[in-house]
Simulated scan of single mutants.
Amino acid sequence: MARFDLYRVEGWRIPLMVDVQADHLDELSSRIVIPLHRFDGQVSPGITRLKPVLRLPIGDHVLETPDLGSLPRSAIGRPVGNIVEHRDQITAAIDFLFQGF
Rank of each mutant, 00 (worst) to 15 (best):
Met1Lys: 10
Ala2Leu: 15
Arg3His: 04
Leu6Val: 09
Tyr7Trp: 06
Tyr7Asn: 10
Tyr7Cys: 14
Tyr7Gly: 08
Arg8Tyr: 13
Arg8Cys: 12
Arg8Ile: 14
Arg8Met: 14
Arg13Gly: 00
Ile14Ala: 03
Ile14Arg: 04
Ile14Gln: 07
Met17Asp: 03
Val18Phe: 01
Asp19Val: 12
Asp19Cys: 15
Asp19Ile: 13
Val20Tyr: 03
Val20Ala: 05
Gln21Trp: 03
Ala22Gly: 11
Asp23Gly: 11
Leu25Asp: 10
Leu28Tyr: 09
Ser30Asp: 05
Ile32Cys: 04
Ile34Arg: 02
Ile34Thr: 04
Leu36Thr: 10
His37Gln: 08
His37Asp: 10
His37Glu: 13
Asp40Tyr: 02
Gly41His: 05
Val43Ala: 12
Val43Trp: 01
Gly46Met: 10
Gly46Asp: 04
Gly46Ser: 10
Ile47Lys: 10
Arg49Pro: 00
Pro52Tyr: 07
Val53Leu: 06
Arg55Glu: 15
Ile58Ser: 13
Ile58Phe: 06
His61Phe: 08
Val62Glu: 07
Leu63His: 11
Glu64Cys: 10
Thr65Met: 09
Asp67His: 03
Asp67Cys: 10
Asp67Met: 12
Gly69Pro: 03
Gly69Leu: 02
Leu71Trp: 00
Asn82His: 08
Ile83Trp: 01
Ile83Phe: 06
His86Asp: 05
Gln89Pro: 00
Ile90Tyr: 08
Ala92Leu: 06
Ile94Pro: 01
Phe96Pro: 00
Phe96Asp: 12
Leu97Ser: 05
Phe98Asp: 02
Phe98Cys: 04
Phe98Ala: 07
Gln99Ala: 14
Phe101Asn: 15
